[in-house]
Design a protein around this nucleic acid. Structure first.
Length: 118
DNA sequence: CCGGTGACGCGCG
DNA sequence: GCGCGCGCCACCG
């Protein structure tokens, strides 16, 4: 049916708050899929351009806190820029601190004084 | 129907 | 902390 796992995955991705990032494995888990993080990547790969604008795909990165490379060169720079525009910081190794920017699904807990944003 | 591939994750050295 | 290799599943030719 149209009720593919893709729709489910995209739905979860839409729930990621601005300025936050989630890992493929996390999305897979929330979407009700097993440790099949690969499926999430596949779903995003198959993400139609017409609805790509309604799905914050840039907020999905791998468990290492890094942007997964796609077929097209330069795609990493595009995604990084979009995330930085939301306030997500990257370190010298092009990695995001998941402890600070990782999305805590369902807990929305306001990190008290997690300053140190520098 | 079969084999290769891929926006990944995790264990091991 | 980093790099390498294997495992899982759906899609494509």
């Amino acid at each position: 049916m149209s009720t593919t796992s893709y729709e489910r995955i995209w739905s979860v991705v839409r729930r990621i708050p601005r300025g936050r990032v989630a890992t493929y494995g996390q999305i897979a888990r929330i979407a009700g899929l097993p440790p099949q993080a690969r499926m999430v990547g596949y779903a995003l790969h198959a993400l139609p351009d017409d609805i790509a604008s309604s799905v914050p795909w840039q907020r999905v990165i791998n468990a290492q806190g890094r942007i997964s490379l796609r077929a097209f060169a330069g795609s990493e720079a595009v995604q990084r820029k979009r995330l930085e525009r939301e306030g997500v910081k990257f370190d010298a190794k092009a990695r995001v601190d998941l402890e600070r920017f990782g999305w805590k699904a369902g807990t929305e807990m306001r990190a008290r004084s997690s300053r140190s944003t520098r």
